[in-house]
Amino acid sequence: MVAGLRRDARALDELVEMRRLAGRFHEPISTPDLTDRILHGVEQRRGFLSSRLRRRVKQGRTLVGACALLSLFLIAVAHRVNPDLFRLHAEPTPVADLDQAVVDDSIESKSVIRDVVRGLEPAGLISGAEPVRRDPVALPAIHIPELATTAPAAPPERYITLTACADAEVLALGGSHSLIARFEITTARADDASFAACPVEWPVDRFASLAVLTMQIGSSPAVSADSPVVAAGVVPLSVDPGVVSAYVGRFDPLGRSEITVDDRANPQPNLRERVSSDEDR
C-alpha cells in the first residue's frame, strides 16, 4: 500500500494533508477549570460528607441496625417466655368453657335480680287498694277475708313455683311493689328451701286459670309479722293463715288482661268471677 501511495502523488498529498489536519486536533485547547462549579452543583443535589462524618454516619447506621436486630431478638425471647406479654387483646375462650360461662352468667343474673328484689321494701298485704295500671296488666287487689287454709291431706303432686327472672316487671300496687315473676308448674321437691319456707301449699288444680301471680316480695331475714315475706319459689296465696289474699291474673302478651279470682270463701268452689282490666270496665 505504501509503495502504491508513493506512486500516486495525489493520494499521497491527500494523506499528508489529512495527517496535518489530524494533528491540529491534538493541539491543546484552553480548558476552563469547572471543578468548583460542578462540585457545587452536585452538592446542591446530593451533598458530600467529610471522611470523619462519613465514618460517623456509617457507624451510626451499623449501630441502628444492630439495635433493631437485638430488639427483635429480645422480643422473640420474651414472647417465648411469656406469650401474653405482647398480646393486644384477650385470647378468645374455647367453646369448652361455654357451659361454665352460661352457669356463671345465670348465677350473676340471679344475684342481680335478687339484689333488685331485696331493694324492694317488704310490704304487707294490700286489701281494698286500688291498683295502679301499668301496661299491660292491671291487677286489682281483691281481698278474700276468710279462706280456710287447710293444708291438703296429701302432698300435692304439682306446685306453682315462682322464680325471679330477668324480664320481671315491677308493678306499683297500692303503695307497695309487686314483682311479676315467671312461674312454672313443677313437681314437689322436698329439699327445696323456698318450698319449705312456705306454710301453705296450694295444689295447682285449685286454680284453673292461673297464669300470673303477683306477690309482694321481701327477702330480708329480719321481718316482722307485719311485713310478711314471700320468698320466690312456691308461693302461697296467703302468707298469713288467717288472712288470705289472692292475686291471680293472666298475663296476655297481646294486651288483653283477664283476671280470674278464685274465691275460696265461696262454698261453690267452681265459682269464677271474671274481673276485667281497667279498660274493660
Partner: peptide, 16 residues
C-alpha cells in the same frame, strides 16, 4: 460514599 475529593479527581481527569 460522598468523598468530595474523589469526585474532584474525576472531574480533573475528564473535563478536558
Amino acid at each position: 460514599a460522598g468523598d468530595r475529593a474523589a469526585a474532584g479527581e474525576f472531574i480533573q481527569a475528564h473535563q478536558a
